[in-house]
Simulated assay, not measured.
Amino acid sequence: MMFNQKSIQLIVAVAVFLAFNVCVRNIAEAATITDMAGRTVTIPDTVRKVYAPSPYGSYIMYSVDPSILAGLIFPIRDEDKKYFPKETQNLPVIGSLFGQGQTANTEVLLKTNPDLLIMWSAKRSAINEKTEESLKKLNVPFVYAVAESLSDYPDVYLFLGKVLKREERTKQLSAYCKKTLDEIKVTVNKIPAEKRPSVYYAEGMDGLSTECNDSIHVELLELAGDKNVHRCHTSNHKGFEKVSLEQVILYNPDIIVAQEKVFFDKVFNDPAWQNVKAVKDGRVYLIPRHPFNWFDRPPSFMRIMGLKWLANILYPKEYKIDMVKDARDFYRLFLCVELSNDEMKRAIYP
């Protein structure tokens, strides 16, 4: 097929026009933001699909908008599927990209074609250069949400709302978090330190693992009065500090909050634990864990409800709430699920 000079000029002109329009469209469809780590990032103006390759980021996205998730970091347990839309349940399991327990399938991740990765950091100054270099190789823009403590969650929600254009929803979630944190602070401040009950956090099947008072895994205890009996400096992020039963007896806590149902179910009938005040007084409580743990492992947005639960246990006269009603309201707002009173009771008191 032959082209004359005019035809060639026309083709070139059309090609230049189309290329220009593509560039203009790309510019128009891009937005420049500053993420919570202070990085300037260019992201798509409209984010249709995201992936958060850590439990913290992945879980918070369930509350922001699970419909835009590209995949899951962990499979959803059968007993928890009722808390999620069918579309979310059927997403591919991609896993975690970095850190301990790295399981991510980068091939599956790239096949899902996310517009954006939401990274999570516990410190603004702790962004890892090697991690950044690895992320850049994926050729997917990424932003950092930063939460040094639960008190940062209101700001994290506002940041994600801005990035994902879900501002109306995230303002509601942020306001709920802030209101709860403020309520607990006011309640605790009214109670002298010496009148606050002491607490032992029982982890493991035998209840003989716990956390130092400065660990992220017991941040709720700090916010609810800072009466964790195990006073020490945490040895590592993983936690699970081993203690002896003799040490727990010496601590003689007023209250025990338990992570494992196996331990909870046997502690009241175990002769070895009968000399512990919390056991004698019947004040051992199993932490709710559906669909995510209210207290820890991983620390997530569910701790906002967990903080209300804990404050009500520690200060039932000063912090009076209808636990079932408040939990139903929380699940309705954060997870968009409507539970009956009986369903909610089973989740709180398994």
Rank of each mutant, 00 (worst) to 15 (best):
F268T: 02
Q274H: 06
A104C: 15
I249N: 06
Q9F: 08
G71P: 03
F292D: 05
K308Y: 02
L97F: 14
L335I: 05
L110A: 12
D281I: 09
P192Q: 07
A347L: 04
F330L: 07
M61K: 04
K111P: 00
D65L: 11
S121Q: 07
A175F: 00
A147M: 05
I11F: 15
A52G: 15
T40K: 15
D45G: 15
I348D: 11
V14W: 05
V276P: 07
G99K: 02
N26G: 06
T131R: 11
L173S: 01
K81F: 00
P192V: 00
F334R: 02
Q259I: 08
N228E: 07
P288M: 01
D265N: 15
I33N: 13
G204I: 00
V243Y: 02
L158V: 14
L18E: 03
E260D: 14
D65E: 06
V93D: 05
N90G: 11
A327T: 15
M344T: 15
K86W: 01
I94N: 06
K242Q: 12
D152M: 09
R166W: 05
E183V: 06
N236W: 00
F84I: 01
N105H: 01
S96D: 04
Y51Q: 10
S54T: 15
L220F: 07
V262T: 13
V41K: 12
S235K: 14
T106P: 06
A147I: 05
L307F: 03
A202D: 04
P192T: 07
Q259V: 09
I60S: 09
I27M: 15
F240C: 00
M305N: 15
M36F: 03
D326S: 15
S174A: 15
N105V: 06
Y62W: 09
R39W: 08
S96H: 13
T234A: 13
R346A: 13
P141N: 08
V163F: 03
K345M: 11
L245P: 05
E318F: 07
N90F: 04
L109Y: 04
N113Q: 12
K325H: 14
I216W: 10
E168V: 14
I256W: 04
K242S: 13
I76H: 00
E132H: 10
F334K: 04
N228M: 06
Y331L: 14
I304M: 09
L164N: 00
R39S: 14
S340H: 02
E107S: 14
E148Y: 01
P141R: 10
L10C: 13
Q259W: 10
E260Y: 14
K162M: 11
L91F: 08
A202S: 13
E246C: 05
P53Q: 04
K81E: 05
L109N: 08
I43G: 03
P288E: 01
I73R: 05
G161A: 11
D214Y: 03
K81C: 01
S340A: 03
K190N: 11
I11P: 15
F295P: 09
L72K: 02
T112C: 12
P316D: 12
V284D: 02
F159N: 13
I255W: 06
N293G: 07
E203W: 02
L314Q: 13
F17V: 14
